[in-house]
C-alpha cells in the first residue's frame, strides 16, 4: 500500500526522515534507509535541512525508492526559482517520485553558506498551487505540459505558533492551494494539539503530528528557547529530569511512544511524523512501544 493509499484507507500512518549527508559517502544513510523500510509508510527526504548544504533531496528519494522505502520529496523555495522548482518536480515525476512536501525553507542565515543569495522567488502556498497545476497538465504560466504529473502533495503547519491566527490563515491557504496532507512542527502537548485538530478537522486534509524525541531535560529547555513553535510542557521536563542522565533518552522514547499511542487510540489525527535527527535506529523502538509494530 502506498503512502497515499495508506492515508486514504484510514490507516494510522507513520513517516520518518532520511537526512542526506554532506559528501558522497552515503553508507550511514543507506543503513538508516534499511532500518526504516518495511516499518514506516514513507520517509521525508530533507532538502538541505537548516540551510546546510548536502546531497539534494531528489537523488536520495530515488535511492530510497529503489531500496523499497517510499520517499516524500521535501522541496523548499530557498535555493531555486520557479523555473528550477518546476523542472525538478517534472524530474521527480519521471523518476517515479510522487509525494512532495512543499515548504518555504529555513533562511540561509541559519545554515553554513550564510553569504548565499536566498531565492524565495515563490513560497510554500504558491508552490502548492504550482504542483496542483502540473498535476492538471499545465505549468504555472498556463502552458501545456507534454504529460502531466501525479503528485500527492503535502505541507507543514505549526500548531503552537504564537500568535496562532496568521498561521491558521496560512494553513487554510495551503488547504485551498491543494495540500492533501500536513506534517506538523514537533508537538509535546496533546491537549493543545487536540484544540488545533478541532480546527483542522473542518478541512478535507490528513494531518500527521510531528515528533522530535527528547533526549534530556536540557534538550527540552533548548527547544523551548530556540526553536520557533515548540513548547515542551514543564511536567515532561520534570519527568526527564527525574529519570536521571542514564535513563533520560529511554524516558524520552517512552514519552514519544505514549503520545503517539494516545493520538492513535483516540483517533486525534491521521498519523505521525517522527523526526529522529540521527537516531533513526530508535524509530522502530518508538513504534513498538506505541503498539504500531
Amino acid at each position: 500500500m502506498s503512502f497515499k493509499e495508506a492515508l486514504e484507507s484510514g490507516k494510522f500512518v507513520v513517516t520518518a526522515e532520511v537526512g542526506p549527508p554532506k559528501g558522497t559517502d552515503i553508507s550511514e544513510m543507506l543503513h538508516h534507509i534499511d532500518l526504516l523500510k518495511g516499518k514506516i509508510d514513507a520517509a521525508n527526504v530533507t532538502d538541505n535541512q537548516s540551510a546546510v548544504m548536502r546531497i539534494n533531496s531528489l537523488s536520495v528519494c530515488k535511492i530510497a525508492m529503489d531500496k523499497g522505502l517510499e520517499p516524500i520529496l521535501q522541496m523548499t523555495c530557498r535555493d531555486r526559482n520557479r523555473i528550477g522548482l518546476q523542472s525538478d518536480l517534472l524530474g521527480a515525476s519521471i523518476l517515479g517520485i510522487h509525494n512532495v512536501l512543499c515548504m518555504t525553507g529555513d533562511h540561509v542565515s541559519a545554515g553554513d553558506h550564510k553569504e548565499a543569495k536566498p531565492v524565495y522567488d515563490i513560497e510554500s502556498v504558491q508552490l502548492l498551487r504550482i504542483v496542483d497545476s502540473l498535476n492538471r497538465g499545465k505549468d504555472m504560466m498556463g502552458s501545456d505540459l507534454k504529460g502531466s504529473t501525479k503528485f500527492f502533495q503535502g505541507a507543514v503547519v505549526t500548531p503552537e505558533a504564537n500568535p496562532i491566527e496568521p498561521q491558521l490563515m496560512k494553513f487554510e491557504k495551503k488547504v485551498n492551494a491543494g495540500a492533501n496532507f500536513f506534517q506538523t512542527q514537533a508537538i509535546y502537548d496533546i491537549e493543545k494539539f487536540r484544540t488545533f485538530m478541532a480546527h483542522a478537522r473542518k478541512f478535507p486534509v490528513k494531518v500527521l503530528a510531528g515528533f522530535v524525541v527528547l533526549k534530556s531535560s536540557g534538550m527540552a529547555n533548548f527547544l523551548n528557547k530556540f526553536v520557533p513553535g515548540i513548547n515542551v510542557p514543564q511536567d515532561l521536563i520534570d519527568e526527564l529530569k527525574a529519570a536521571g542522565k542514564e535513563k533520560a533518552l529511554d524516558t524520552g522514547l517512552n514519552i514519544t511512544a505514549r503520545h503517539i499511542k494516545q493520538l492513535n487510540e483516540e483517533k486525534i489525527c491521521d498519523g505521525v511524523h517522527i523526526m529522529a535527527i540521527g537516531m533513526e535506529d530508535k524509530v522502530p523502538i518508538i513504534m513498538e512501544r506505541a503498539g504500531l509494530l
Partner: peptide, 14 residues
C-alpha cells in the same frame, strides 16, 4: 527577509 507574500513562515516565534 524571505520576502514572503502569503503569510508568516514557520520560523516566526512570539
Amino acid at each position: 527577509p524571505k520576502g514572503l507574500l502569503v503569510g508568516p513562515c514557520g520560523g516566526m516565534s512570539d
